[in-house]
């Protein structure tokens, strides 16, 4: 049974040379996935630097260019995430979704908890960058934990 178009988010079957051994095909697959990782992370890194420079005022941009750049960054982030998810297998998608869920939950709890604490005078006003950093750290820890569990299992 050939995978239909809508199956692409579930372990897409890519064209690999059937004359190669499975281990050779796996090596090619690893290289392909590594390239996807490098492009996705590289794009995110460059986008982050550009956004950081714009936010810090180091880049003098007119409001139109700023919003256009931000829109481009958003489109690029969505496109590269979809591109990544369609090229990895379903276990990788599963791990990404669990880690993202952990990050989302952490983000909501930290934000709501900090706002509530600040409203009662128990904490300083919430800092957006600290919340984002905590979200990122928790997402990465959740992802690394899932990967470690798979390697040890």
């Amino acid at each position: 049974m050939l995978p239909r178009k809508e199956d692409k988010m579930n372990s897409p079957e890519t064209n690999t040379n059937p004359s190669l051994s499975g281990e050779d095909r796996l090596r090619r697959r690893r290289r392909r996935i590594l390239a996807v990782w490098i492009v996705t992370i590289g794009a995110g890194f460059l986008g982050g630097i550009a956004l950081g420079l714009a936010a810090g005022g180091a880049l003098s941009l007119s409001p139109l260019f700023f919003w256009a750049g931000l829109a481009l960054l958003a489109v690029g982030a969505v496109a590269s995430s979809l591109w990544f998810m369609r090229r990895v297998d379903e276990v990788e998608v599963f791990d990404n979704l669990w880690a993202s869920f952990a990050g989302l939950l952490a983000h909501m709890l930290i934000s709501a908890g900090w706002v509530a604490a600040a409203a009662r005078g128990l904490a300083p006003a919430p800092d957006v960058l600290s919340v984002l950093l905590a979200t990122l750290v928790i997402t990465v820890i959740a992802y690394a934990g899932l990967k470690l569990r798979r390697r040890l299992g």
Binding site: T14, L26, R29, I33, V88, E90, K147
Partner: peptide, 24 residues
């Protein structure tokens, strides 16, 4: 390599830690 997934995916399916999709 033959089914175009990672080795970790094969291990996860073998050990019952992941139930594959119908297409896989």
């Amino acid at each position: 390599g033959r089914i175009d997934v990672s080795r970790q995916a094969v291990n996860a399916i073998e050990t019952g830690k992941h139930d594959p999709s119908l297409s896989l």
